[in-house]
Design a protein around this nucleic acid. Structure first.
Lengths: 335, 335
DNA sequence: TAAATTTACGCAATCGTTTGCGTAAATTAA
DNA sequence: TTAATTTACGCAAACGATTGCGTAAATTTA
């Protein structure tokens, strides 16, 4: 039953003295093939372990039955959980998921999008590190009609599918909690300015301060891109000049940079400065002193994003209706 | 320059009054096309943003220019780093990497291997959660001649490409270090029995004990599969009955289960029991008390595995020469 | 019983490329 | 000047599957 090369339809057709088209239809259980013939073909195909060549199928049908997801990095637990949610839904509907990493490089991101288009993925889940306009340009220039669902970092307009968590509320809650702990000089380690998550988290942070009668001090707000050096420089500068009594960190990485920097401070500051940050890392709750965490419902975000994408892929009526889902994020590990 | 659907060769050929074959050859810089024609075709193709359809190319050439990597889970830093190493090499050679997760399910693993074969990946990097024999069976039944490089968990025979770290030495060093810390009742939390890494790490652990004149106590050795519950049960049982003074954990997950279990113990045990475990998690070094870590050179393992795979893919002479690379792993975070 | 319909299959085009082969025209060699 | 070669292109098959259409034979209908 083993063979040297994959069995194809014409192998079966020759062996059974049937035409290729009959074999194809028999395997696809077409009504225009006799029951007896079907039985013969199907059992023979099973015996020789026939598997349709997916490339040929894809070329014919102009469908690949796979969706792509582009994330900054897979080792980030937040994105890993999203991927898991996506796979959960996609696999259950017979789709495969191809994961791409941009490592937060615009160049890589654009190349990947081009490649996804050329390989004719049926859809794309995207959390762009890049300028939104540029992404849409690239997408258009491929000429592909590639359905896209944005998640986490999303465009500001309403002409696209989006899945996010309630960044504003989460940032508000986190900052408010720090204030309740008696903190007043709360630094905000923000991600790159200009992208949706940074803007919303900043807004929540500011609102919480103002709500508590604390004015927003621009000196305590630092934007960092994805390079570790920039974050470290910001942290050192903050410690030297302003000595905040708490940090609110806007991403997984920034949370850990903050945590590490604070732990290196001399006591008693090291154990007095409180930190709360966005993170889905399962190890975070093992840290002492605690790193309080805003945990996003990443798995669900992935599930929902995949469902939206597959819906638009398989939809018959072409009138698009853009979806915008916002899920709550929870503050955890606050003793 | 934008268009509604992707431009294909025949679009260009019509627009320029040339045959499709001439256009194809011109774009591929064939010597049998005049310089002037080439210039015209290439500039027009650039103008209309022509990108070859990779599915059609793949079907024609029976090559897809992508390789697959199958890992238990991507959120595990060890595997994430391996993937990064693989992508580093593969991308530089024009290959794309498709990542699959088995979540340590045999069923998923087999389905994925089948799918990889059907989609005609040019090669496969595999760290099987599954019975080796079964994996080879499945591979054979697809009829695909799919080059494979195993990494981390590898078959015992020498008729395949393998990349591993020196598990024996690392386990020996880790155990020896614990002994030097004055520990005698060192428990070993091992992974599933029967797979290469478990066997080798167990051997290193035993050798270190014997080397120090300590007999190996089977009660202190616990095999756990990938389910958290099993590990927790083992840990509770160990604590109730034997109260080891140190733990040597054989994987990322087991390390953290151990760490968490120990931290929950009443003092002074919680701070006296020492733990050393295999982990590549960047957060591990932030833990206090320390979690000493055996760090595998995951990025390099990924690079080497990808190089081996791409070599066998692109090799002209068909006589296979199997490679077996073993890299050292380092004990870190031991103050 | 003749006509209409259904059943069960084969032929050939198609998806978008690549490539072996054929062939005029242009060039070189004899 | 004629023959041999090279240049520069087009035709058509191929990769492996799906599918519209055509058509004998079998069945049903009038």
């Amino acid at each position: 039953m083993d063979q040297e090369r994959p069995v194809k339809l014409s192998d079966i057709s020759k062996a059974l003295n049937l035409s290729v088209s009959t074999v194809s239809r028999a395997l696809n259980d077409s009504h225009e093939i006799g029951d007896e013939t079907k039985r013969i073909v199907q059992s023979y195909a099973a015996k020789v372990n026939y598997r349709p060549n997916l490339i040929a199928q894809s070329l014919k049908e102009m469908k690949t039955r796979y969706i792509a997801i582009i994330v900054p990095e897979i080792s980030n637990s937040f994105f890993a959980e999203i991927v898991n949610g996506v796979e959960f839904v996609a696999n259950s509907q017979g789709y495969h998921v191809v994961i791409y990493q941009t490592q937060d490089s615009t160049e890589r991101e654009i190349n990947i999008i081009r490649d996804v288009a050329r390989r004719k993925a049926d859809g794309l889940l995207l959390s762009p590190s890049t300028n939104q306009k540029e992404v849409k340009e690239v997408m258009k220039s491929t000429g592909a009609k590639l359905p896209v669902v944005y998640f986490d970092r999303v465009p500001s307009d309403n002409y696209c599918h989006k899945v996010v968590c309630d960044n504003y509320q989460a940032a508000f809650d986190a900052t408010t909690w720090l204030i309740k702990q008696g903190k007043r000089r709360i630094a905000h380690m923000a991600g790159p300015s200009g992208i949706s998550i940074s803007i919303e988290r900043m807004a929540g942070y500011s609102a919480a301060l103002l709500n508590a009668g604390i004015s927003v001090d621009p000196n305590l707000i630092r934007y960092s891109n994805f390079l570790a050096q920039e974050a470290w420089d910001n942290l050192r500068d903050l410690e030297e000049k302003y000595q905040p009594d708490a940090y609110f960190a806007s991403s997984d990485r920034l949370s850990f940079y903050c945590y590490e920097a604070v732990q290196k401070l001399p006591e008693p500051r090291a154990s007095e400065v409180k930190i709360v940050g966005f993170t889905n890392a399962p190890l975070a709750h093992l840290l002492r002193p605690k790193l309080s965490a805003i945990v996003q419902p990443a798995f669900d975000m992935g599930k929902i994003a995949a469902e939206m994408l597959l819906n638009t892929i398989t939809k018959k009526n072409k009138d698009i209706e853009y979806g915008f889902i916002k899920l709550p994020a929870l503050l955890k590990n606050t003793e």
